[in-house]
């Protein structure tokens, strides 16, 4: 007795995807190099569309409509992903190549003192000091404020009018353009109180940008702590603030730290508020409370605005250093998050 299989259908062979892809790329190459005239990006687009159409049609004929739709949508999703990745990868590669060529010890430790725009050499040491101090000040102020605000919103203020207002203003702060933050510190602190431009003022401007990011990310992390843990702890007769400190925060800490690192990374790249609050200095200034400091983003801006070949090379170097700095922060965030993650078997 033979049984007719009812659970299996005809499927495309496994080699179908690479073969169709190779054919599509081949057509693209022919168009590009054997063509009548240069076509720009058109051949790549043509190859991509050709791949999608050819594979879906083949699939429809062999496998039926459901599989064909599945393959069509799958290709579109992957295509969208690749399209979104193109600019990112492009930027990273360009910056890495152009920045790497100026990287050396002198560039990392040196400053721009007595180095004119037409001269090679110089370095980002002073800018690195500025970025570390300004971002450090911003983190010192905004992490406690942001985390405590989030604790108030999630643990104490659920559904209360005050927390609805706080939440609203945090949203408003999120939308503040960064140059407005700089302008605010410039008028409210520097002009009003007669302080000089300083790294500290820049740190304050970054604080304004950082607080809402920290509040939102911490809030998110606190909200995913299951309520049953809070109830379990409260039912043991543990006072509420100790429940928050010793049960809720440890459960959420890895996510909170990741969010904090991402917030730091985000403000490390800000340029406009720094120009208003601390402007530029060509030499290293370790005193964040007096006088101008250059930071990495303002260093890049300064060098580009000079327009000469050595200066533009230095700008690429600065961009490369800034990206590395942010990458190190991301990596640190992952490591710390893994270390603090709740123990699981």
């Amino acid at each position: 007795m033979t049984t007719v299989p009812i659970l299996t259908g005809r499927r495309l062979p496994r080699w179908s995807t690479p073969v169709v892809a190779a054919a599509a790329i081949l057509v693209g190459l022919v168009l590009q190099f054997g063509g009548i005239s240069p076509l720009g990006l058109a051949p790549a687009l043509f190859a991509a569309i050709g791949f999608i159409v050819a594979r879906s049609t083949w699939s429809w004929i062999l496998e039926g409509r459901r599989h064909a739709t599945d393959r069509l949508m799958g290709s579109l999703v992957v295509g969208a992903l690749l399209l979104a990745l193109v600019p990112l990868v492009w930027i990273l590669i360009t910056v890495a190549i152009r920045g790497y060529s100026v990287m050396n010890t002198e560039f990392i430790t040196g400053t721009m003192r007595n180095i004119g725009p037409r001269v090679e050499g110089g370095g980002i040491g002073h800018a690195f000091v500025g970025t570390l101090q300004q971002v450090g000040i911003a983190a010192l102020i905004s992490l406690p404020i942001g985390i405590m605000t989030a604790i108030q919103l999630v643990e104490y203020g659920r559904g209360k009018t005050l927390s609805r207002w706080i939440s609203f203003f945090v949203d408003v702060m999120t939308g503040v353009p960064s140059i407005v933050a700089g302008l605010f510190i410039y008028t409210a602190v520097i002009l009003t109180f007669g302080f000089s431009q300083s790294g500290f003022a820049a740190g304050l401007a970054l604080t304004i940008l950082m607080i809402p990011v920290v509040v939102r990310s911490t809030e998110e992390m606190l909200r995913i702590v299951p309520n049953s843990l809070r109830e379990g702890a409260l039912a043991l007769g543990i006072p509420k603030w100790r429940v928050i400190t010793f049960v809720v925060l440890p459960t959420a800490i890895s996510g909170i730290i990741t969010g904090a690192m991402l917030a730091i990374a985000r403000v490390a790249g800000e340029t406009a508020p720094l120009l208003l609050t601390t402007f530029l200095a060509q030499d290293v200034n370790f005193n964040a409370f007096d006088g101008s400091q250059t930071a990495l983003p303002t260093f890049i801006w300064d060098q580009i605005s000079r327009g000469t070949a050595p200066a533009i090379d230095r700008a690429w170097g600065g961009a490369y250093a800034l990206i590395l700095f942010v990458l190190v922060l991301y990596a640190a965030a992952r490591v710390i998050a893994a270390v603090f993650a709740p123990a699981r078997e």
């Binding site: 299951p226 049953s228 109830e231 379990g232 039912a235 007769g237 709740p342 123990a343 699981r344």
Partner: peptide, 18 residues
């Protein structure tokens, strides 16, 4: 103090994960 005197066990086990 009430909760220290009157303990409670819940429907779903909720040990502290950390």
């Amino acid at each position: 103090l009430v909760r220290r005197t009157i303990g409670m066990v819940f429907q779903r086990p909720n040990p502290f994960p950390t």
